[in-house]
Simulated scan of single mutants.
Amino acid sequence: MKEIIYLIPGLMTDKRLWSRLIPHLEDEYELIHFPIPLSEDFDEIVEHLDKEIGNKKVNILGFSLGGYIASYYTLKNPDKIKRLFLVSSTPSSTEEKDIARREKKLQEAREDNFSPLNLEKAKELLEIKDDEELIHIVSSMFNDLGNKAFVPQLASTLKREDLFDDLVKLNIPISLYYSTEDRLLNHTSINEILQKENNLKVISREGTSHNIPLEFSKELSIHIKDWMSHE
């Protein structure tokens, strides 16, 4: 029987996020995509995930916002998690410098003033600028999910608490993989994690990519396989 890995996407991403990663992993693992429920309450979100997982003991990988959800779930249900992997994500609160900007965007979205992500803006979010299919995937995920997903997902980011100290007390393999110049990542949290003695395996790659599962799927799959090899 294959080991199960639950895959949790991030803000305004869906199962298409894993489309280039799955071919590298599907022969070895059972990969289950968990779409983020339309809720801004992390307790409610992880209740949905717990119903999905049931009595199984699984591995869990989260990207960006999904990494925080995966961390939150792991702390709520440590007996159900074998391993935790965070991609372009930290188990931390939102930085003060980002809160006002997000609150402004949230207010606009609540007033139904939703700005679609055109191809040019999608391209700006990527490290790889010449992959047309990739640009279309990022734009389509955002626009298809739309305002109904954007409002609760963005609102949830304003309710994050720092989970790091509790997370590192768990005796499970935890890996964190990120790009050194990712402008969407909380680098203050990364620096704090690197300075504290803990059991996290922190792996960095040179570059700006936030969407690592799409842009650098092969490299990510190698680190996932290594993570899965640890008991």
Rank of each mutant, 00 (worst) to 15 (best):
F150P: 07
L106Y: 09
S140E: 15
L84P: 08
L49F: 15
P78T: 03
F85S: 05
E127D: 09
S209W: 02
K80Q: 12
S19Y: 01
S140L: 00
G54R: 06
D27N: 15
E26A: 12
P173R: 06
T188D: 14
S229I: 08
S19K: 11
L176C: 07
V151F: 00
I190V: 15
R20E: 08
I137S: 05
N143Y: 00
L125K: 14
D41V: 02
R102S: 12
E133Y: 10
I60Y: 03
K225D: 04
S92A: 13
I193D: 05
K123M: 09
V202D: 02
H187L: 07
S115I: 13
K105T: 13
K123I: 00
Y72S: 08
Q153W: 13
K76I: 12
L184S: 12
F150I: 07
S209R: 10
P9H: 15
V58I: 15
K2F: 07
S179M: 10
L31V: 00
K2Y: 05
V151S: 01
I8Q: 07
L167D: 02
D27H: 10
N211D: 09
N198K: 06
V87T: 06
K169W: 07
N118L: 12
T13W: 09
K57A: 03
M228P: 05
T157V: 10
M12P: 04
E108V: 06
H223M: 12
N171I: 02
K97E: 14
S89Y: 01
E127A: 07
L214W: 13
V151Y: 01
I69Q: 02
D98K: 14
G54I: 01
L184C: 02
Q153K: 05
P37F: 09
A149M: 04
E197F: 05
N113G: 02
P152S: 06
T208D: 09
S179W: 03
A100Y: 07
K201S: 12
P91H: 00
L61Q: 03
L185Y: 03
V58G: 01
L158V: 13
A70W: 01
Y177F: 15
K76F: 12
S115H: 09
F114Y: 14
K196W: 11
S229Q: 01
D79Q: 15
L119E: 08
E103C: 00
L126C: 08
H223Q: 14
N171G: 07
D98V: 09
K76H: 14
V168Y: 01
L17V: 03
I22P: 05
E52C: 09
S39Q: 00
L167W: 03
V202G: 07
